[in-house]
Design a protein around this nucleic acid. Structure first.
Lengths: 238, 238
DNA sequence: GTGTACGTTTATGTATACGTTATTACCGCC
DNA sequence: GGCGGTAATAACGTATACATAAACGTACAC
């Protein structure tokens, strides 16, 4: 994975254009974040501030502020005189991220179960779990991945803990690229899909301990699976 | 808790002067962060960018960058035309933070126990636990609080998970003021101190499950205690 | 061919300027 | 006194300028 500069010929502004928001900082932040997460920029990719600012049609000032935010979120690093660099994610990083998600989501499942949620409150989670099942049946891996993300996002939101939601989102962002790259290297996600329904059922039943255990087991199995893939394919950085 | 402006007469630059670092951003970041965490600035406190920049002897540019970082860390909010405001921490926030710390530190204890640490590696944690004991015996609450922080910091560092360390540090930062304010409102921390030793022993023995349970129980009891204090004293924001 | 020295270029970190608009102060009226 | 309208002020968000020093390219010596 060699480092690429912003002058790489396959990069044009139109491939991920800035979508205007209320502020230039926000525009830059969202645009750049998207590029990192969706692998439009590969790991290690570099670009200078002035180049990015020109491309996004703004001065360096808001662009820098966006980069500071992205750096705080662990998605890029800002290197003096070398601009920004997309932070590669190593296998160790993935282990760390997955350990975090395991702890956070197990806690989220427990908190959700304790809250005695209504059918309406549980619906988005149930819908997401059902969507993973439909996608699996239709053998549509991309739809499955999207539904999987939705499941996990909805799960942490049901915890009612804002900080947990925020941190889990950042963990998911950091892992997103690796998830996408390895999506077709893994066995069919039969276990995952079944485990989703299991977690939902435990939450619905208000069984906090069982919900915790179910979600935790789900993430632990997923962690083992992913780390095995990274090792087997000798994927050092993603 | 009324809002105070930067012109409050009891604030002078010398009470928490900027300590020069390699960059002005870093100087501002550390100075301001310290003021928030140590309650030099109370919850809700406001200050304008230009005022802070003047006080710290720099232009608004690096000052803004420092504020962006602090906002990302949940310590302040930046309000257009009103400058920055120290984010008050509500009882709900404290519940969220403690739930996070419970999940993260229990996981840290488990990971630490799994790593089969040497005596040398365990020493900082053991020393910190011993320090809480000594401070308790000497009836020195401030020393106890400091040792307690050291214990928790060392615990998460033993997890070997960098992301966990980073997130736990931020949770501790957010909770720091509330911890300090409530330090003398709680019973003598006899349980805490005994629990520290219990956790250390489980980690030393390499019993991951027991370490997880011990640290989790420790944090859960502490959570209940703190939330009860906040309710009893009608502390709405800290 | 390799290493070093030197001059030039360039990408920052920071300061300052500028345009916009939210906020505040003031005034008149009821 | 309270309310509404208007003008002035101020605090941004952003653009531009500037100083610094890192990085690069070239020439020369061994």
């Amino acid at each position: 994975m060699s480092q690429k500069r912003a002058t790489a010929p396959d990069r044009t502004p139109s491939s991920n254009p800035a979508v205007p928001t209320g502020s230039l900082v926000e525009t830059a932040y969202r645009t750049l974040r998207q590029r990192v997460i969706d692998n439009a920029w590969p790991p290690g990719y570099r670009a200078l501030e002035q180049e990015l600012a020109l491309e996004l049609g703004m001065s360096r000032t808001p662009l820098r502020e966006a980069l500071v935010r992205l750096q705080n979120e662990g998605l890029v690093e800002v290197i003096p005189r070398h601009g920004m660099r997309v932070l590669p994610v190593s296998a160790d990083d993935m282990r760390d991220i997955y350990q975090m998600l395991t702890a956070l989501e197990a806690m989220a499942a427990e908190l959700a179960a304790r809250r005695r949620l209504t059918r309406a409150q549980l619906k988005p989670l149930l819908d997401a779990a059902a969507a993973t099942e439909h996608a699996l049946n239709a053998e549509d891996l991309d739809a499955w991945a999207s539904a999987d993300e939705s499941f996990h996002r909805n799960l942490v939101e049901l915890s009612g803990n804002r900080l947990l939601v925020e941190v889990a989102r950042n963990c998911a962002d950091r892992a997103h690229r690796a998830r996408a790259v390895t999506l077709r290297m893994r066995p069919k996600p039969t276990h995952s899909t079944r485990e989703h329904m299991d977690v939902v059922e435990k939450i619905r039943a208000g069984d906090a301990r069982a919900a915790f255990d179910a979600q935790r087991a789900h993430r632990e199995r997923g962690t083992r699976e992913l780390l095995a893939i990274l090792e087997y394919h000798q994927l050092k950085t993603l």
